[in-house]
């Protein structure tokens, strides 16, 4: 079949972009653009982009599970939107990283082994009940918001451009998590108890987010040093928890090293589900 015929056949279905959902928002830097126009980063920058991409990919995979299971329809839409944004960030970071190694976003997402992933433990944690998901979102979205705000000034133009888009979206994610934390913290005794429980089980994975690794230290001016975000993060989350009538728990900090490929038991299952179909059909296009 000729291209024109195929285009005509596809056009018969109407507007290709008529989705209520922001698949490719406004002036977004799309992964497709990075793949075509992007300049390959150094191996070091690619390693850094990979860490950011892996966090977003695993978090999006987790959040996507809520679609069709949320407490109310509005939350199916909201969590779906957030997952979609975060998946978009993952795709941009992974596409950019892949340029250094001649790999696509899908090569990196579907064909790496568990120990090659660099995600943080906090994003691998199970969804639990809605309160656990909201608390995980609160912890991560405040972190990502601070991170992308700084990454906008990175000397690496592509990372800066991805961050410029992501920061606006993560600002909304942060707001969503803050509103729900306050609502649930102040709602009923049951909801407050569930939020305290969520804090207890997630708090041990906070320190890992702020640990500077060699990859950060070698990329001065390009990467954001996670340790520099700690104070602002602590101040912001304390204020939200106070508004919600909650407190930072006294739990200790787990000795975890996701950035070095040492993962929670959960990641294996996340990857098994995510990769199963692609791996059944090596070399296939979809």
């Amino acid at each position: 079949m000729k291209h024109e015929e195929l285009d005509a056949a596809l056009d018969s279905f109407g507007d290709a972009l008529a989705s209520a959902t922001r698949v490719t928002p406004g002036n977004a830097l799309r992964p497709e653009d990075i793949a075509v126009d992007g300049v390959a980063p150094s191996d070091e920058v690619a390693q850094y982009a990979l860490t950011l991409g892996d966090d977003s990919l695993i978090l999006a995979q987790r959040l996507a599970h809520w679609i069709s299971r949320a407490p109310e329809l509005e939350e199916d839409v909201a969590l779906g939107n957030i997952a979609l944004d975060i998946l978009g960030h993952a795709r941009s970071f992974l596409t950019y990283a892949g340029l250094a190694w001649d790999k696509s976003e899908d090569d990196l997402a579907y064909w790496r082994e568990e120990e090659e992933f660099t995600s943080l433990w906090i994003v691998e944690q199970p969804n639990g009940h809605f309160g656990v998901t909201i608390m995980r979102q609160l912890i991560v979205s405040i972190f990502q918001h601070l991170l992308y705000q700084k990454l906008v000034s990175s000397a690496d133009e592509t990372l800066a451009a991805i961050a410029a888009k992501a920061v606006k979206e993560v600002d909304y994610h942060r707001d969503h998590a803050i509103q729900w934390t306050i609502r649930l913290g102040q709602g009923t005794e049951e909801s407050a108890e569930k939020m305290r429980h969520a804090l207890d089980i997630l708090w041990p994975y906070v320190d890992e987010m702020f640990r500077d690794e060699a990859v950060h230290q070698r990329l001065e001016g390009i990467a954001v040093l996670p340790s520099t975000l700690r104070d602002a993060w602590q101040e912001e989350i304390t204020a939200v928890l106070t508004d919600a009538g909650l407190q930072i728990p006294s739990t200790g900090q787990a000795m975890v090293y996701g950035r070095r490929g040492e993962h929670s038991e959960h990641l294996g299952y996340v990857l098994a589900e995510m990769q199963v179909l692609a791996r059944k059909h090596p070399g296939a296009s979809w």
């Binding site: 069709s68 899908d106 995510m274 979809w286």
Partner: peptide
Amino acid sequence: TRAPSLKRKSILMAKVQ
């Protein structure tokens, strides 16, 4: 959660949403 490419995953999520 099992979509075979990230692009397809993104489109499917948008659709269900």
